[in-house]
C-alpha cells in the first residue's frame, strides 16, 4: 500500500489537474482490498489521509470524520500512464 501523502501537491485541486479522480473514503481492510482492486483494473492509486482534504467535504461530514475511529483515507485513482 502506498504511504499516505501530506504535502501541498496533494491538495484536491492539484490532484485533479494532474488527472487524478477522487473515488471515496475508506478505512481498514476494505481500504487495502479496494486499493488492490483499482490497481488490478489498471489504475494508479493514491491514498490521502482524509483530514488533509477536509475543505472539499461538507461541514457535516467533516465533523463526523474527525471522530478518532479507524484511520480513514480518500482513494484517488488515475489511468496508468
Amino acid at each position: 500500500m502506498e504511504l499516505p501523502q501530506h504535502n501541498s501537491e496533494d491538495a484536491p485541486l492539484h490532484l485533479e489537474s494532474d488527472g487524478w479522480v477522487r473515488q471515496f473514503v475508506a478505512s481498514g481492510e476494505r481500504l487495502s482490498e479496494l486499493e488492490q482492486l483499482y490497481r488490478s483494473l489498471g489504475k494508479e492509486v493514491k491514498l490521502i489521509e482524509s483530514a488533509s482534504e477536509f475543505p472539499e467535504l461538507p461541514e457535516n461530514c467533516r465533523t463526523c470524520l474527525t471522530i478518532p475511529t479507524a484511520e480513514s483515507y480518500t482513494i484517488w485513482t488515475r489511468i496508468r500512464k
Binding site: 473515488q23 471515496f24 473514503v25 475508506a26 478505512s27 479496494l34 482492486l37 483494473l41 461530514c61 463526523c64 470524520l65 480513514s72
Partner: peptide, 13 residues
C-alpha cells in the same frame, strides 16, 4: 468481471 466501481464514502449517508 468488475470493470469499474464506486462506493459511498465511509459513512452511512
Amino acid at each position: 468481471k468488475v470493470r469499474s466501481f464506486r462506493l459511498n464514502d465511509k459513512c452511512a449517508a
